[in-house]
């Protein structure tokens, strides 16, 4: 169980995390979603005692990380930033960490096998691929058989097989009753892995919800792509029922404000032929825009520049589904 209360971190003038409050419960995979630069890594570093909060607290099982007497046995962590000496072999890296807690060599062998690194564990980490590095990080996180696992962008650098592997691993850990907290800037990754979602943007809490309702909320405003030989007539019809059309370069229309069903029904009612009707996927950017739009209205009283809903255009980092 991870409890974050009023957590705030400023780096000089820059606000990295502002007044975050949430709880990560055991038995679920809790996704920590936000665009690059939203404060996910900072939050995790605060939880792991690597950075000091400006205000507020982060506790694991009721205690600050620094006060845990056997941290690796309670929390396993995979950071996004490198945290391994490249000159050491993977096995010796794990061994050195294990020795701080009196964890036996046998356990080192176990986690090496668990992540499938047997063949390269004795080689220097400097020669590891990104994916092998991630597997080593997962091995380090599981070394102490912790009840809480914190992973920052674990899918980074993994191939599709590796991503499937880590997804199943995390689900398995949660099914064993552990607390699993993982961050990602990819919504698709969260849809497939997480049960619950904590969404942040610009260092502030945007949503604390379950995955299904977040996706539903985010997809509500998704545009529809439609192609018709009578595009102009169709645009007129759709405009009449509250849609907003945008002409695409290939002659198709991008319709905002209407679902695919509404577009198809309207066309059928007017006898307009359709050659294509595609609900477009919500991009992460769209999702954040739509979700944070509500927050702007909700927080209108906040001072200028301190609003959680300030333009998030830079947040999505070009990630498209």
């Amino acid at each position: 169980m991870i409890e974050v209360r009023g957590l705030t971190k400023h780096y000089g003038d820059r606000i990295a995390v502002e007044d975050l409050t949430f709880t990560v419960e055991p038995g679920f995979v809790t996704g920590f979603l936000g665009p690059n630069g939203a404060g996910k890594s900072t939050t995790m570093r605060l939880i792991l005692g690597l950075d000091r909060p400006t205000r507020g607290t982060a506790t694991v099982n009721g205690r600050a990380y620094q006060d845990l007497s056997a941290p690796l046995r309670e929390v396993g962590a995979l950071l996004e930033a490198r945290a391994v000496h490249t000159g050491r072999s993977g096995y010796n890296h794990l061994l050195a960490l294990a020795q701080t807690h009196g964890i036996p060599r046998r356990r080192v062998d176990e986690v090496v096998a668990l992540v499938g690194l047997e063949s390269v564990a004795r080689k220097r980490v400097g020669g590891f691929s990104l994916g092998m590095g991630q597997r080593l990080g997962v091995a380090a996180a599981l070394l102490g058989d912790p009840a809480t696992v914190v992973l920052d962008e674990p899918a980074n650098g993994l191939d599709p097989e590796g991503i499937r592997w880590i997804r199943n691993l995390l689900k398995g850990l949660a099914a064993e009753g552990r607390t699993v907290f993982l961050s990602s800037h990819l919504m698709s990754e969260m849809e497939q892995t997480a049960d619950r979602l904590i969404v942040i943007g610009r260092g502030r809490l945007v949503a604390d919800t379950d995955v299904a309702s977040f996706v539903a909320q985010a997809s509500a405003g998704a545009p529809v792509r439609v192609r018709s030989p009578a595009a102009d007539a169709l645009a007129g019809v759709l405009g009449g029922i509250g849609g907003r059309c945008e002409q695409l370069e290939d002659g198709a229309l991008k319709v905002f404000g209407l679902s695919a069903e509404q577009v198809g029904d309207a066309a059928a009612a007017q006898g307009i032929a359709l050659h294509e009707l595609t609900p477009l996927q919500v991009t992460l950017e769209d999702a954040f825009m739509s979700i944070t739009k509500d927050l702007v209205e909700y927080h209108e009283s906040l001072p200028e520049g301190e609003q959680p809903g300030v333009p998030l255009a830079t947040l999505a980092d070009g990630e498209q589904q």
Partner: peptide, 18 residues
């Protein structure tokens, strides 16, 4: 890879610390 199924982690938590 070795662990596509959920892992079997031994529950050895003799909480000896650092």
């Amino acid at each position: 890879m070795s662990a596509t199924a959920s892992p079997e982690l031994p529950r050895e938590r003799a909480l000896q610390g650092v």
